[in-house]
Amino acid sequence: MELISTLAKIPGALPGACAQGLIWGIMAIGLYFTYRILEVSDLTVDGSFATGGAVCIVLMLNGWNVWLALLMAFIAGMLCGLVTGLLHTTFGIPAILAGILTQLALYSINLKIIGKSNQSINVDKYDLLVSLRWVKKLALNNPLLTVVVITIVLVALFYWFFGTEMGCSIRATGSNLAMSRALGINTDRNKVLGIMVANALVATSGALLAQYQGFADVNMGRGAIVIGLASIIIGEAVFGKIFKNFALKLIAVSLGAVIYYIVVQVVITIGLDANLLKLLSAAVVAVFLAIPHLKSKYFAKPVKVVEEEGEIENA
């Protein structure tokens, strides 16, 4: 009986999980640009996610319009990416380390932006774009609808962008550095640009999440990269076979984040200690990252050798 009553709670928790997943999905799409397209592991995101939230909430508390606050979060994210990009290209620091440095620096900067470790915003007093309060309402301001629309607009925008000359040259940079330079592509500039765009999306996602949950927190981005990677991996595992088009691949990443949050919600509802959540996330991502390697090493299908009859006779 107890189990049934527990399971009965799950449907009620689903809208919230979907909304969170969709918001984190935007962050994961940003991570997809660096991780899959540029083939750079950018750890800036743990910091820039919180920066987006902090900038947005503080500006709104100062009377800014929500869209302008979101735009500023977007720009703040680009600046975070710019720092990592320059550390990596101009100063030759390995990408992972450059990201870690920026992320650490951002912790202080985020504290300065907010003025303390977290800051709430009252949904009744400020005109928020998304809030968890409306997540079960059948209304136009339901965050599920809002975030789906934002996601579709962003996917359309970047589908177009990566088809342009500049977008193609960024993809080429990620695919083959030597070739790109030989074809006159400024690979350093493209890397910086790619990391900037990615972090802009990450910060926007952070700004949306801060509104959704009603507060910005300097720790809200902790482990963001793992959640982003999990979303990418889940999206590819579930939809990889059917989604071949680039726009659909980005949608798959977003859906991957939704699945991730649904699973998390179910696991918590069933009664897992929430403190173990990050351990679980890390383990899941580690397993999925390891699978391709282990597969090729231990489970590679042996090539079938068809022996011709003549050879057998001769032997």
């Binding site: 342009t164 500049m166 193609c168 990620g174 695919s175 030597a178 030989a182 074809l183």
Partner: peptide
């Protein structure tokens, strides 16, 4: 392996090469 981008299409590779030495803006890539 060095002269081409393996993860991109044949026509995309050619389009990249066609723009060697030219500015790459927001016009369509191909």
């Amino acid at each position: 392996m060095t002269g081409t981008a393996a993860t991109m299409q044949i026509e995309e590779n050619l389009a990249l090469a066609a723009r060697r030495g030219k500015p790459r803006g927001l016009k369509t890539g191909i």
